[in-house]
Design a protein around this nucleic acid. Structure first.
Length: 384
DNA sequence: GCCACCGGTGGC
DNA sequence: GCCACCGGTGGC
């Protein structure tokens, strides 16, 4: 039984160009905002459109945040930004949280409990969080941190290990995560404490799937984040007890048949190749329809399509907002991935060095305990 | 030569 | 439009 979480909060604050933000909806959707925005938090309901230039609302206490059971429309969040240019929202495709973080700022955006980010941390950030060794694999982003949102206070809590994260994720729907659960590794933690992490634009987030089974004993589930602008966001691999990497259910099934010794007590239901979804809408290249002409030639090049706003037409909106819908149940968990070094600056620490070209990068460990560091492809990279 | 990574596509 | 699957290949 999935929580009925249908509300999202939009918060747009400060000024910044090329904003991309996306928040998933547990009722099956994601929302993306991109382009240039100019301030003002605002509220929007499903099916309505939002003018990101305008509306603001009064400061709200956290108690005003939506409660899952009654969530039916966008909710407000606490905000301290200006509140001029109030306007109605209209035509937004769904409820969402969008914010326009000032560069380097640490915004205060709360997610509804079904947002499941993977965000991107700098190596120093990750080292602080997880005491990781260098785990750069080529030049790719990777999960930098896992976070889970408290079902009660909606604050994000960092999960100290991939294993714990996967354990939580496996049962997240039946057993929603709450801050008190984090007392296992943080005895004093409660909903009264500040969130461990916020959607402040310093990281890229991706939405994970709920209730993915933990890998069988002796097996490891690997999530490999692909480079920016590829045809796919990530790949999942399962590493067998003997070290072989399997990349599909077909291969798993075949492997189990061929290795009955390792197949004992292992069921196919323990495997899932579902990948998270990036919150940065343009992270994955759109696949354009292939048109076939009478002479047999085709047109439509993947990547040639620029992401377009789906329903963003408030007059003053000088932006390219994009709305879409995610389709996850109630993803609470959030792996965190490294940011593109040249475009993201950590508000906490130094920015990542611009990555060298992929071909020059040393190979690192595959996953290194689940929290590897990788850089995103930069503009010098492939694809146009 | 291996394999990690990426692209492409068929099926839905 | 999404995703499961797998072939190709660049980098090591």
């Amino acid at each position: 039984m999935q929580p009925s979480l249908t509300k999202f909060t939009i918060k747009i604050k400060g000024e910044r160009n090329d904003v991309d933000a996306l928040i998933p909806s547990s009722i099956g959707g994601e929302a993306v905002i991109s382009g240039t925005t100019t301030s003002a938090p605002q509220e929007c309901k499903i099916g309505e459109q939002i003018d990101i230039n305008a509306p603001a609302f009064q400061d709200q206490e956290e108690s005003n945040l939506l409660k899952p059971a009654e969530a039916t429309s966008l909710e407000k969040v606490k905000d301290n930004s200006s509140d001029d240019d109030d306007q109605d929202c209209s035509n937004a495709q769904n409820q969402l949280v969008v914010y326009n973080p000032p560069d380097g700022a640490s915004d205060d955006v709360e997610f509804s409990p079904d947002a499941v980010p993977i965000n991107f941390l700098t190596p120093p950030q990750r080292s602080q969080l997880y005491n990781l060794q260098n785990s750069v694999s080529r030049n790719l982003p990777s999960v930098g941190a896992f976070t889970v949102q408290c079902a009660k206070c909606f604050k994000w809590r960092l999960i100290p290990s991939k294993e714990k994260y996967e354990e939580i994720r496996e049962h997240i729907l039946e057993q929603p995560f709450v801050c008190e659960a984090a007392r296992e590794w943080r005895p004093e933690i409660s909903c009264d404490d500040d969130p461990d992490i916020r959607q402040d634009g310093s990281r890229l987030w991706a939405i994970d799937r709920p209730n993915i089974a933990q890998a069988p004993l002796g097996w490891e589930r690997l999530l490999r984040i692909r480079g920016f602008g590829g045809t796919k966001f990530a790949d999942v691999y399962y590493v067998t007890p003997s070290g072989k990497r399997l990349r599909s259910m077909v291969e798993v099934q075949r492997y189990l048949l061929e290795h009955p010794d390792e197949a004992e007590g292992v069921a196919l239901s323990q495997f899932s190749f579902q990948i998270p979804r990036p919150l940065q809408e343009n992270y994955v290249k759109k696949r354009t329809p292939r048109l076939t002409f009478p002479d047999g030639s085709t047109s439509g090049t993947p990547g040639s399509s620029q992401a377009r706003p789906l329903s963003w037409s408030c007059p003053e909106a000088n932006t390219d907002l994009q709305l879409g819908m995610l389709d996850y149940g109630s993803p609470y968990q959030a792996p965190v991935v490294e940011p593109p070094s040249a475009t993201y600056q950590s508000p906490l620490h130094e920015s990542i060095d611009r990555p060298a070209k992929r071909s020059k990068q040393p190979s690192g460990q595959m996953y290194n305990g689940g929290y590897t560091y990788m850089n995103l492809q930069q503009d010098e990279g492939r694809r146009t």
